[in-house]
Design a protein around this nucleic acid. Structure first.
Lengths: 232, 232
DNA sequence: ACCTGAACACCGTTCAAGT
DNA sequence: ACCTGAACACCGTTCAAGT
């Protein structure tokens, strides 16, 4: 609109891959992942869609880059943590690192989706995993056990755990109706829901992946790994 | 092509939601999830794309239905398992069930992707979870601990674990080059790869999710849950 | 060097119309 | 009741062309 009238410092400097990627993160933060189209992204930086292709190869490159930005944030955050050293307490060292990564993810709830869609690791993730591996090693893990541990952590290593279903959306949720209609056929589920009332108001990552469940699963894995470590 | 000439028993009977969904599964099995478009699916059942909308509401309904078909398969398979009873050995009972579910998933490697995209549970999945909960309960779990356990299992409850990255695709894999170029900056990763040589030829579900890693993670969780059960 | 307009090949979907 | 043709509103992307 006002592209010509007032040279607003930033819109004057030519586009760059970095500015495209930062705009992509902001767009997804504000309007959701489904809004992250090449056309919307172009409009976001005040340019036509086709101009983006001068700075990025294609949309896959945008998504790869966006993951790199987010995990770059994580690497920055975990770089300035001063908790217990891995030699003293590998479990705590790993735990604070993962929960710090989770904080970044909570600020970008769409990020887990795009990370899981990626087919190869970004450089930032390689760096992050190198750091995790370092903690395992300094904690006394063999490469073999550390390798298993990384697999067992899965997405929890990066601070999220993609739960299978989204609890919200009452109108489109068949499971609620099903539970009412077939309560007698589903004794355990109805019993469980009556007892624990699965309406945690703080489903932090959009899924049923709230903080308490995340930490329960994380500690279950860390404790199990610790036992394997000392059994060896 | 030969729609008029020879009335091949099946192409004569009118379309139904069931036939559409079965065709969708076959199409995805044969050509991959990205080939599962409304136009392709219509062609698959010998009809124009718009005709599908007479039998299903939209593509989301197709994907929901397809999940229901797959998990229906699982429910059939696990229904005819005669392993140890949960009262005797809940861990083994759960384990064989989950590994049976995994066998079905291995026959439909695209299924995890579409399951994770769903926003609500299908009836078949509600039934499957009811069965899992029953095993926990008969094994002596409180509803509260069983609930945590279901969350901790996550997608492993259904027999898959979406790993973060796909090991294949040498040409598009930045991590390989990165490891070579920056080997000295990544001592732990290079050390690990040299020791364990992460080239398992049998990456069963397309990701680095091979059978050994799946079972390692599953047993780590089951053993941890068993300890919590007996600690209570 | 950087950006654009027009166009292409796809999507999912609506709607009025055919039998 | 069941299916269709034409059309719409979107995608990502190519390519020749502008400055």
């Amino acid at each position: 609109m006002t592209t010509e009238s007032e040279p607003r410092t930033e819109s004057r400097i030519p586009l760059s891959k970095e500015r495209v990627l930062r705009a992509a993160v902001e767009l997804a933060d504000r309007a959701g992942l489904e809004s992250l189209t090449m056309r919307n992204l172009a409009h976001e930086v005040g340019v036509e869609a086709m101009s983006l292709y001068y700075h990025v190869a294609n949309k896959e490159a945008v998504l790869d880059g966006v993951v790199d930005v987010i995990v770059g944030e994580i690497n920055e955050v975990v770089g300035s943590i001063d908790g217990p050293t891995p030699e003293d307490d590998w479990k705590s060292a790993l735990r604070v690192r993962i929960l710090a990564a989770r904080d970044v993810m909570l600020a970008h709830p769409w990020a887990p989706d795009v990370i899981e869609q990626r087919t190869h690791m970004s450089p930032a993730i390689v760096l992050y995993f190198e750091g995790l591996l370092g903690i395992f090693r300094e904690g006394g893990f063999s490469y073999d056990l550390a390798h298993h541990a990384m697999h067992a952590l899965g997405s929890k290593a990066l601070g999220f755990s993609q739960e299978l279903f989204n609890p919200g959306n009452e109108e489109s949720d068949q499971s609620g109706e099903m539970l009412e209609q077939f309560a007698e056929q589903l004794p355990h589920l109805t019993g469980m829901l009556m007892e624990i009332g699965h309406d945690d108001p703080d489903s932090t990552l959009g899924w049923c992946d709230d903080q308490a469940e995340f930490e329960f699963s994380l500690d279950l894995l860390l404790d199990g790994l610790d036992r394997l470590l000392h059994a060896a």
